[in-house]
Amino acid sequence: MATPLKRARGLGAAHEGTETFWRQRVTAMANIPLVIFLVLSIVSHIGASYAQVKAYLANPIVAVLMLALVISAAVHMRIGLREIIEDYVHAEGCKVLALVATTFFAGLIAIASTLAIVKISLGS
């Protein structure tokens, strides 16, 4: 028997459930190996030449990991930064502006990094 419960399940008054919580956890899990990869990438390229760094990033495995990292990190940072703003910025106008700025910031990081990695990979 179909009841209205079917429509209500998982959807409270906010019309959404635990997506944000879950997305934060999934990106957190992805970020663990990817951040280890990033830290090793940074430390192993201190003072490296342009050609060395470019060749490193052009490697398809490195490029895939780097793309996964910037996308996962951008999603994760947007959630975290919003959480900080929602807790500490109480003036409604400032809060909305800061939340929008956070989305733009995370979006810019994801898009700019992705384009850079793709451009380096394609060797243009």
Binding site: L38, Y50, V53, K54, L57, M66, V70, A73, A74, M77, G80, L81, I84, F105, A106, L108, I109, A112, S113, L115, A116, I117, K119, I120
Partner: peptide, 29 residues
């Protein structure tokens, strides 16, 4: 929370690094 915010700033630096490499040797320098 502070390190989370710091990581966001760090990713801006990482983006700057990646974009500079994609532009060319002068930007990377």
């Amino acid at each position: 929370r502070i390190t989370g915010f710091g990581n966001a700033v760090g990713f801006a630096l990482l983006t700057w690094w990646l974009v500079a490499i994609s532009i060319g040797p002068d930007a990377y320098a």
